[in-house]
């Protein structure tokens, strides 16, 4: 877990003020431990993504909530799909191959 002041060192090009604005927008949601903000690995990776979007790709800050919302939805979908694929794999019979056949027929 990293503290607020560690972030500009970990992610080049991000200032404390900028980070605070991202947290207040709830684009970044650190954990609060004894009223101190703590940033986990996933938070830091997400900060790095925001930094890339805003400073390297020059994406308009106004578009960030739209992008984050879509990215979060994609990941939720991926996790659902993974559950489904695991369930299919865990099935003792060969329903996997059957499914593939059916899917290809309907495509």
């Amino acid at each position: 877990m990293s503290n607020e002041e560690d972030i500009p060192v970990l992610v080049e090009g991000v200032t404390i003020d900028e980070l605070r604005s991202w947290v207040s927008e709830r684009w970044i949601r650190p954990t609060t431990i004894e009223s101190v903000l703590k940033f986990g690995h996933a938070d830091v990776a997400r900060i790095r993504l925001l930094q890339a979007l805003i400073h390297q790709m020059d994406v308009d800050v106004g578009a960030i909530p739209v992008i984050l919302s879509l990215i979060d939805q994609v990941h939720s979908m991926r996790s659902q799909m993974r559950c489904l694929a695991e369930a299919i794999n865990a099935h003792p019979g060969d329903i996997g191959d059957e499914l593939i056949k059916l899917v290809r027929l309907s495509q």
């Binding site: 954990t31 979060d72 939805q73 979908m77």
Partner: peptide, 25 residues
């Protein structure tokens, strides 16, 4: 650096889980 997707895929970013409901399988 690791990318955000690695954390999201590994289930390590649940505070960012989408509010959209996927309950309708």
């Amino acid at each position: 650096h690791d990318y955000y997707k690695q954390h999201a895929d590994a289930g390590g970013a649940q505070q960012y889980g989408s509010d959209a409901s996927f309950e309708d399988l």
